[in-house]
Structure formats: C-alpha cells, structure tokens
C-alpha cells in the first residue's frame, strides 16, 4: 500500500508552557489542499511551524512518503516552500531580486511573476508596494519554488478578490502537478479539505 504523501501521528507541541497541539493526527494525499481552521490561538501557525521543523514537536511523528522527517531534516526542508505571517521579503530589493535570491531559475521566476500579475511591479522595490502587493510577491516566491509541499500561513491576508483568484489558480496548478498544500486560514478556500484545530 502506498503511504500518504504526508502523515502526522499523535503530534504534540507546547508553546510558552501551554499545550497548543495534543495528539493531533492527520494525513494529506498527493494533490490535496488541507485548510487549517480554528480560532485565534488554536495552534494553526504552530502546526505549520512544527511541520516545517521550525519548532520542535514534543511528541509524535511527521512522515513524508513514509519516512520520518527528523531522520533527514535537510531533505525534508528542501521539499518545503514556506509563507509565514511575515512576507520574508527584503524591502530594499525589487520584487524580481527578492524572487531570484531564492530561485535562480529565471524562467520559473518569470512564470511566478506572471501568475501573480506582478509584471508591472517586478522592478519596483518592495518598500514601495502595498500590503496586498507584497503578499502577492511573497506568494510568487512560493510559486517559483520547485518544492512539492507548500506551507502557507494566512495566504489570503491583504489580498483583494482578484488576487485571491490568482492564488487559488496557482494552488490548483501546484496540486495538479502532484504537490500538496497546507494553509492556515480564516477564509474559505475552494476544494480544500478542512481540519479544524482546537475543536
């Protein structure tokens, strides 16, 4: 039997002395979008950071293609494209320079810039962009990556309706190539399987 693409078993994590995640188990199959929902403080961001190994888990396992990710964390990290609360963009660099600093392949950067309708903004310094435009640039960085696992923390933040459509289309293309996406969100995401935390 082929194991799920990503399988989480009995995951537990404490933050600031408080148990945020406790005995959490779920799996994500190839081509699937998992939407993490729940109230503020329910552990959505903590779960994403734990999956990315940015925060150590207190218990439980995270298996990717059947293998525990802590056995070879560098290999696992190379499979992850990350969008955090913060955009992770350098304000003094242009959109294109920001994307190039993590993706040397010009064609992939061009495609991501086009996918998020950033062509007219590509040579502008990030400090001159609006919050929504910066979020689109950060999402374009994720889309330019070749990593099969997208971990997105509130990807819809500051996006207008048109930009949200672009994001949904980018996620759909990523899933169609066999990738997976896990997004912490308070908004509806089409075709996503919800996982409510803190329920």
């Amino acid at each position: 039997m082929v194991p799920p693409f990503l399988e989480v078993t009995d995951l537990a994590c404490r933050r600031g002395g408080r148990r945020v995640l406790d005995h959490l188990s779920f799996s994500v199959g190839t081509g699937e979008l998992l939407a993490l929902t729940g109230r503020n403080g329910s552990g959505k961001s903590t779960l994403l950071r734990t999956l990315a190994l940015l925060v150590p888990a207190d218990a439980g396992t995270i298996r990717w293609q059947g293998e525990d990710v802590v056995i070879d964390p560098d290999r696992w990290r190379s499979q992850v494209a990350w969008l955090g609360h913060l955009d992770g963009l350098k304000a003094d660099l242009t959109v294109r320079e920001n994307l190039h600093s993590s993706q040397p392949d010009r064609a992939r950067v061009d495609a991501a810039v086009a996918a998020f309708d950033l062509s007219a903004l590509a040579t502008r310094e990030v400090r001159t962009l609006s919050a929504g435009q910066r979020r689109r640039a950060a999402l374009a960085r994720v889309a330019a990556s070749t990593a099969p696992v997208w971990l997105l923390d509130e990807p819809l933040n500051a996006l207008d309706a048109a930009a949200q459509t672009l994001l949904h289309a980018a996620i759909a293309r990523h899933l169609a190539t066999g990738g997976v996406a896990i997004a912490a969100t308070h908004a509806d995401m089409p075709s996503a399987r919800p996982l409510e935390l803190g329920a």
Binding site: A52, L54, D74, R77, S78, V80, W82, G84, H85, L86, D87, G88, L89, K90, A91, S102
Partner: peptide, 18 residues
Amino acid sequence: ASDYEDGSLDLLLLAPWP
C-alpha cells in the same frame, strides 16, 4: 535582526543548504 523582523530568517532556516 532585519531577517528576524521581516520573516526571511524562516527562509534561511528552511533553505536546502546548511
């Protein structure tokens, strides 16, 4: 500090190189 403040420290921590 600037990487810490703008979120790019996370990208460094997740980069596929040491």
